[in-house]
Write a protein that binds this DNA or RNA. Structure first.
Lengths: 216, 216
DNA sequence: ACTTCTTATTAGGTATACCTAATTCTTTGT
DNA sequence: ACAAAGAATTAGGTATACCTAATAAGAAGT
């Protein structure tokens, strides 16, 4: 009767992520995100609901308090793993996601503490996302996508909502990483590109790309 | 048709370890070591044999070249994990085994390399056991158990064949750790204790305990 | 309102890795 | 040599987590 926690963690983490965009998460979105068939997800969601980790209504799936707590613990371990990989093992930010997806299920609460301590209690992952603290408290900054800035507006990159390595490499090559200041020089009309100024250089950035960069 | 590698790795690692004591490993020993029922092990061993990872004869199970290579890769990841835990995350040597048992299945070849590099290519785990290199080459020192030394013999601790935390704590408290020099002052007859001298202090050590400490 | 399209679920099936109980095969003691 | 003990396997069964194909339920278009 006991849980295959890795699998459960995977589901909770996905639901957690998808909830940020779409509140009650549809099972089809979840299936797509987990790369599983819809029936498999349907079935598993039922089990999660039985364990009181999610509520499953007509509109979709959402985490219960308990599910949310558990999801945040996984997110914490994922992001701490990413930091361990970059800060200590010399990984680049585009190489850490997949590795962290495996590590997050192999890290004990004790190791979680030790990583946090050894890294000086980092507040964010290498992509700028906040690391929930031990009690699940998560300080989320108010951000907006870079794509929504007006011409001549200046802002600081908070995080990058992206995990594709190619894309991350591209962004890093332009210096578009957290804590960097960006000036929007010009916004081309009709959904055209943004001309941005980053640490002295000027680049044209597609809207799609710019929408993934969150700034404050 | 593809492998549940973590489980396979677990078996190979156990067989690898047990082979050091008893060459063809009996399925019952294996079952005991893995804390599984004999039939479960019997069945799994059949699968491993199908995959050409072990040879299963009347006398027992032994690793094929391929199985041995795979086992050594797991051992490498296990011991590198242990070193990561002690050297970077501040764990004590008695706290690392269980944690490493989980990590060893979540570490990619790339991460393996990075850990080794970041730690300066350590040659042994915190308990003194050699870390196989990338190609499975493993330099095994010629050792004998401390329990076999004669009175007045002096030797250097190479490794400790033990993973029980309590025991490791005890040994560490006496300073009985790898690379430390020990002098046997006296050997009590009839399987009695050894009186040993370690960094200025004198202790009485049971035979059982002493047999787990390998020296050169 | 009704058909169409999408979304979700049920039905039925597979593979993995475990279990207990029963059986067979292998030693070993007398 | 043979019975008792011990080791290993077969038989039969469970739970988990996945799948495809078929069906049902809900939303949207004319």
């Amino acid at each position: 009767m006991e849980a295959d926690t890795p699998r459960i963690e995977e589901y909770l983490e996905s639901i957690y992520k998808l909830q940020q965009e779409q509140h009650p998460v549809s099972t089809s979105r979840l299936a797509e995100h987990l790369k599983l068939s819809a029936p498999s997800v349907s079935e598993m969601v039922k089990k999660l609901a039985n364990k009181r980790l999610v509520n499953h209504t007509e509109k979709g799936v959402c985490l219960t308090d308990e599910g949310n707590t558990m999801a945040k613990r996984v997110v914490r371990r994922h992001r701490l793993s990413e930091r361990l990989l970059t800060d200590i093992l010399g990984y680049k930010w585009d190489e850490v996601h997949d590795e962290a997806c495996r590590l997050e299920h192999a890290i004990s609460p004790q190791m979680e503490d030790r990583i946090a301590l050894s890294l000086g209690n980092p507040k964010t992952c290498p992509h700028g996302h906040p690391i929930p603290d031990k009690d699940g408290v998560l300080l989320k900054e108010k951000v907006r996508p870079l794509s929504e800035l007006k011409s001549k507006e200046k802002a600081i990159i908070v995080n990058v909502f992206e995990e594709d390595p190619k894309m991350l490499q591209y962004l890093a090559s332009l210096g578009l990483i957290p804590d960097v200041s960006v000036l929007v020089e010009e916004v081309a009309p009709f959904g055209g590109p943004l001309i941005v100024c980053v640490s002295g250089s000027r680049y044209a950035l597609g809207r799609e790309v710019a929408s993934k960069i969150k700034v404050k």
